[in-house]
Design a protein around this nucleic acid. Structure first.
Lengths: 221, 221
DNA sequence: TAGATTGTTAATCGATTAACAATC
DNA sequence: TAGATTGTTAATCGATTAACAATC
């Protein structure tokens, strides 16, 4: 165990380890080596050992890592051993889709409130949650001890919503709007922008095929 | 202009530049400096200049970058100056949400077909596209010259769908399923996994507040 | 004991940033 | 000309990987 500061790259790999470990546990595999993890996750085994060693001596020399023990430890590191409540702002298609992923996030991380500023949406029921008006944000954040906000509003509203989330006491934001949010340094913001993902993918297309693009004849209204 | 190989980090920043440049163009701003770009996008100006210089001498010393010209150049680099057709596999909530973003992607990148293996979904109309069965994948990919696939199926189906996309001739994949896909080296895969995003966010929560988590009293069925 | 595998140090690789001559 | 800003080289910083002693 060392006490250097942990880079974001390391932190982002932990959930990936966790996911595969959970799969191993389901298959009743009790031990795994950095070698095998690396092969499955397309990572260098030394990197995996180093990542884990930042947080403790979780493995056994000559043996590998105990799957259940490592799951427990990574869950602790990521704070997934405590209940973390999440608010979602933006009850559009994407917000609707994400609210379904509650199941995925297991018991501990949970979307407990959905907000929208567009009045016809307020009062709608989405996955057992009633869409609330923005006016109730602060009250609800305090009542439920909500610590993370997810933004799924259009880009031009995103900064405004972020400001409101921050003012209400939220600590971290996952932003799906295609815009760079400004926030105080103590607020953690991750951007999940698939237009950027998709556009950067285009760069890697093989240009020998550019004239292979056909007209598109999709069904049209 | 140099001919080193371009790192993925550089390529991923280009769409971010493009997005802000489009905003500037809408506001009829004709020129911008790396300094101003850096400030707006939270990036180092030297990095922006270096990124752009990989592809050409787009700026003018003492002046900055011509907004319209730079937009044109970045669009060329990212191949967004040609029509790129996209197929979406998985007509669930998330697939539905993404198909709406066609508007966002402007004219050149477009979802032109949606597939699902679950028969009750086949034939449904989503944004003017009829959901097709997986059996029609290869035929449709060729007919429309589809080059990119988006995967929005459950994790346990993702690898299988990826294999089919690759077999049908697709060149790149944007994967929303929380799993690491295996593919030949010439296929480019980007993963957009928000469960990972969300879990890594939890790491950054301030632990002084852990006992502030309340019971959650969401509306329940 | 022999084989396997960790944790960790040192080496390498790559990406970011600073600095500045060139020049608009 | 003086001020601004690029393109690029060199310096710095940080992350990944290799190597290996420790040890199960």
């Amino acid at each position: 165990m060392k006490s250097e500061k942990i880079s974001e790259a390391v932190v982002r790999r932990l959930p990936v380890y966790l996911r595969y470990l959970n799969e191993l546990q389901k298959r009743e595999v009790s031990t795994v080596s950095s070698q095998e993890l690396g092969q499955k996750l397309d990572l260098n085994p030394a990197q995996i050992r180093k990542d884990l060693a930042y947080f403790g001596d979780f493995g056994r020399k000559g043996i590998g890592y105990d799957v259940s023990y490592l799951i427990e430890k990574i869950r602790q590191i990521l704070k997934l051993d405590q209940k973390i409540n999440v608010a979602l702002v933006g009850a559009g298609n994407l917000g609707h889709a994400l609210s379904n992923y509650n199941a995925f996030l297991k018991d501990n991380m949970k979307i407990v409130a959905i907000f929208d500023s567009y009045s016809p949406k307020v009062g709608m029921k989405i996955n057992n949650l009633v869409v609330q008006p923005m006016e109730e944000l602060e009250k609800t954040v305090h009542e439920h001890g909500i610590r993370i906000g997810i933004i799924t509003v259009p880009d031009f509203e995103a900064q405004n919503v972020a400001n409101q989330l921050i003012a209400s006491g939220i600590e971290a934001i996952l932003n799906f709007a295609p815009t760079i949010l400004k926030a105080p340094a103590h607020i953690r913001i991750h951007t999940a922008d698939f237009t950027t993902d998709l556009q950067s993918l285009a760069y890697y297309l093989d240009n020998g095929k550019e004239d292979a693009a056909h007209d598109n004849n999709e069904v049209d209204g």
